[in-house]
Computed example of a mutant assay.
Amino acid sequence: MSTPRPSAAHPAHPALPAVEDAIRAHTGNAFRITHAAPASGGCIHSAMTVSDAAGTRYFVKLGPAHCAPMFAAEADGLAAIAASDSFRTPAVVALGAAGEPDAADQAGGHAFLVLEYLALQPLQSATDGARFAEALVAMHRRTGETFGWPRDNFIGRSPQHNAPHANWAQFFAEHRLRPQLALARDKGFGGELHKQGERLLPRIPALFLDYRPRESLVHGDLWHGNAAMLADGTPVLFDPAIHHGDRESDLAMTELFGGFPSNFYATYRKAWPLHEDYEQRKLLYSLYHVLNHLNLFGRGYLGEALRLVTKLNEELTLGRG
């Protein structure tokens, strides 16, 4: 087995020999890594592109050994989206590990996920927005029998529990908000946030009195950094936190951090109008992601989390839920 030659842009990673072997096992050819370069892949894992002398490229995510369940869940989510016949997703080439982690703390080893390399472009034009919206509607129309998913997965590094449930409001309260609030308290962000959160949890069903969401296939982490286009206009999704849930939760996430063309929203609403109370439930869905960012990245998100939970409680007190 040859050791990959480090490129000028990136030193050789200790997991690259195992990555090379995994690609060769999948493709059945004599692939050899001759170049490895860092790639933008979010802030949770390190990422790189690897290529051989012929220019064949793959996208690789790397992390400590304990990241293996995250990569497995990501592969599962990509397969589910691909099976929906709505979006293009990067094909999963290999899941694997390198090195021998310590049995006590999983230190010392590496996990990796190898994906098909796609030349991605951001959503920019009105046409991009329309095509992406059409694909999202198609994915959301793929429904399950219950809310949740057959396996637990992750939202960033945070565990996301997906035990099946017939009632979406209860599912969201117990499997989305409650764990994030508990984690925030454990990280020292209790106080008023915890007080307001505990007040909100039993009141969440009031936001669904006149709205019965379908068990739509949702991406779960649909910000603009996880959405793209190919040069031929094909919409692409990746980095999913997949489950069956309220389609409004995906729409709310697209608005939370911006980045989608305005025509995306117009096209989506024309194809499948949103319920009149969406703007209020959007606060609820945004709260989940802001709490997760608070738990992952720290105090900078505390003010926004407290603002959202307080506003929801105020609106419910006024009888608007």
Rank of each mutant, 00 (worst) to 15 (best):
D239L: 09
V92S: 05
D221G: 01
V290Y: 07
F147G: 11
A72L: 11
R281A: 09
N263E: 14
N226R: 03
G197F: 06
A107S: 13
P164M: 06
Q160A: 13
D210R: 12
A119L: 13
A182Q: 12
G144K: 07
A30L: 08
K282F: 04
P90K: 08
E134A: 15
E192K: 04
L207M: 13
L287P: 07
F297K: 06
A103I: 10
A111E: 00
H275G: 06
P101H: 11
L78G: 03
G197V: 02
S40Q: 12
L207D: 06
N167H: 15
V114E: 06
A271I: 01
V19T: 08
F208S: 03
L115Y: 04
S216T: 08
A37S: 15
F31L: 02
P11A: 13
R141Y: 08
G144Y: 05
A53S: 10
A30N: 11
L306D: 03
S216L: 07
N295L: 01
G96K: 04
R269N: 00
H140P: 04
P38D: 14
P122S: 07
D210E: 14
L118C: 07
G233R: 08
Y301C: 05
E314K: 11
A54Q: 15
D102W: 03
F132L: 09
A104Q: 14
P179G: 00
L209A: 13
R203F: 05
D102A: 09
R157C: 08
S262H: 14
H165W: 06
N162R: 15
A65P: 02
D85G: 09
G55P: 06
W223P: 05
E145K: 09
E215S: 12
A119I: 12
A133T: 01
S249V: 10
H26G: 08
T310F: 05
C67D: 15
T89M: 02
A173T: 01
T3F: 15
K195M: 01
G300E: 12
Q180Y: 03
D239M: 10
L95N: 10
A163M: 10
E304V: 06
S7A: 06
S86P: 09
G77A: 05
L222F: 07
S46E: 15
R247G: 12
M139H: 01
P90T: 07
G144M: 04
F171V: 06
P261Q: 00
A68C: 11
G108C: 11
S262L: 13
A54L: 12
V50R: 09
E279R: 12
A119K: 14
A68F: 13
Q170E: 14
A135F: 08
T254L: 05
T56G: 03
L284Q: 07
S51G: 14
L118M: 01
N153D: 08
V137S: 01
F189Q: 04
T27S: 13
T49L: 10
A228F: 05
A231P: 07
V93D: 04
P4I: 15
G42N: 09
S7G: 11
I33N: 07
T310N: 11
D85L: 06
L222I: 11
A94D: 00
H66S: 13
A12R: 10
T127D: 15
A54I: 09
T143A: 06
A8G: 13
V309F: 04
T3R: 15
